[in-house]
Amino acid sequence: MNMQMVREVAREKLKGYCRVCRECNGRACAGEMPGMGGVGTGSAFENNYDALAALRINLRTLHSAKEPNTQTSMFGHVLSAPILAAPMTGISMNAGGIMSEQEWSEAVVQGSLKAGMLAMVGDGPNPQMFASGLEAIKKAGGQGIPFIKPRNNEEVFRYIAMAEEAGAQAIGMDVDAAGIIPMTLAGQPVGPKTKDDLKKIISRTSLPFIVKGVMTSDEAEIAAEAGAAAVVVSNHGGRVLDYTPGTAEVLQEIAASVKDRVTILVDGGVRTGIDVLKMMALGADGVLVGRPLLMAAAGAGEEGITLALETMAKELKQAMILTGCAKLEDINLDIIF
C-alpha cells in the first residue's frame, strides 16, 4: 500500500464531501460547510495553502548532513518527527459518516503512536465527540492531547478534570472556535476568553496547557503571560473567519515574540514534509496536520494515518538532507530563498 492507493480509495468513500484533490488548496470546496471547505469565500483556507506554496527553498548539497535526526521531545513524549495530528471532530457530519467518532479517535491516536508521533483529539456539540477522544487516549495509556472548545469556564473546568482522569499528557483549548455556529445551535455556547479567564483555566491543571488559535503576536503574548506551555498558530483551518491571512504569513512574527517562553506549533495548509520544513524555518517547533489525515483514514483507517505520517517524516528528512540540516535546530531562515 502507498499513499496513491490510499487516496484513490478515499476519493470513492468521500464522494459528495471531499474530492481528494491533487492539490488540497480549498478552491474546489470553498464555502462547503458541512464538508471540508473554508468558510465563506474560502479565502482563509486558500491563504493557508498559498502562503506555504509561495515559499522557495535554497538547495544545498555541499555539507555533511547525510543522516538528519528528525526526533524531538514535546510534552514529555519523544516524537520521531515534529508532527502531530490536529484535533478534529465532526467526521460523521463533515465526511459523510465514513467512520464513527469513536472509530476516528482510536484510529488517529493509535495510527499516530505507531508512526512515533502524537495525536490531539477534539471537542464538539455532541458530548460523545470529546468522550470518544478521551476513551482513545485512556486506551493508549494517556498518550494523546485532548482539546476543549472555549465553553463557559465552569464547563471547561469539568472537561479539564475529565482529561486528567483519562491520564492525558497535556490539555489544549482551541480558542479560534470562539464563534463556531454548531456549538451555539446545540445549546453549548462558546466565546472569547480574557487574559484573566485564561489564567484561571490554566491554573486549574498541572498539565501543560496549549492555546490554539493564535494569529497575532499580541495574543501570543497574552497566552504566554497567562501561563500557556504552547501556542498553536491557527485560523481553524480557514473555517471560522473569512479573509484571514495564511498561518505561514504570521508565524515568523509570533515566533519572534514568544519563542523563548512557549512552544510554537502551527497548522494550516501543511501537506508534505517540505511544508513541515518551511514552517520550522519560520520559527515553529512542530506542526499539526488535519485534512491529510482524514483522507488517509478514509482510505485505509489507522494504517492509512500511520502511512501518511511516516511519509511526511521521510519527506522532511529528505528535505533536510537537501538543505544541509543535520538536526531540527539547524532549520532556520537560511533555507528560505
Rank of each mutant, 00 (worst) to 15 (best):
F130H: 06
K327R: 15
I331K: 04
A136P: 01
H77M: 09
I83Y: 01
V20D: 08
V39A: 07
Q4C: 03
S105K: 14
K200R: 14
A186K: 04
M215S: 04
E221G: 04
A256N: 08
M120C: 11
K212Q: 00
C18S: 04
I98W: 03
A298R: 01
S112Q: 05
E225D: 11
E253T: 05
A131N: 15
E225V: 05
A313I: 14
I83Q: 01
K259L: 04
K278D: 03
L113Y: 01
V20I: 10
M183D: 14
I91R: 09
D174C: 05
G237T: 07
D285G: 01
T306H: 11
N25F: 05
Q110R: 15
I171F: 01
T263Q: 06
S234G: 03
Q143K: 12
C29Y: 03
N2C: 10
G324M: 11
P189K: 14
S234Q: 02
M36F: 10
I254H: 00
E46S: 13
N235D: 07
E32V: 14
Q188K: 14
P125Y: 12
N94D: 13
S112C: 05
Q71D: 09
N25M: 06
I201N: 02
R291N: 06
T216Y: 08
E67S: 15
R271F: 10
G227I: 02
A296M: 10
L14Y: 05
G172Q: 05
A186T: 07
V78H: 11
M162K: 12
F147R: 03
A131W: 14
S206R: 14
T311S: 15
G172R: 01
V108E: 03
G116V: 07
P292N: 04
R7G: 08
A281L: 07
E164N: 09
E329V: 14
Q110K: 15
A115N: 06
L293R: 13
G76D: 04
K317N: 15
I321H: 10
S92E: 11
K278P: 02
S132D: 09
G144W: 02
M93S: 10
P150C: 13
C18N: 10
R11N: 10
G16T: 11
A170C: 02
A54Q: 09
L113A: 02
K327I: 09
S257K: 15
M279S: 14
T244P: 04
I335E: 00
A228F: 00
E101M: 05
V287D: 00
E67R: 15
R11K: 15
G16K: 15
E103N: 07
S257M: 13
T306E: 15
A166G: 07
K139S: 12
G144E: 11
G301M: 10
G304F: 02
A229P: 01
P87A: 05
G301R: 05
E106Q: 15
A81R: 00
L251R: 00
L251S: 01
L84I: 13
E310D: 13
R19K: 15
A107F: 13
M173F: 03
L241V: 08
V250S: 02
S80T: 09
V289R: 00
I181F: 12
L185M: 12
L52K: 04
C24L: 09
S132F: 09
I181H: 14
K199T: 11
I83K: 00
S132M: 06
S105D: 09
V78C: 13
I305M: 07
Q128K: 15
R204S: 11
N58H: 08
A228W: 00
S80F: 11
A65T: 13
I335T: 07
M129H: 10
A281E: 08
G133Y: 01
G26A: 08
G179Q: 11
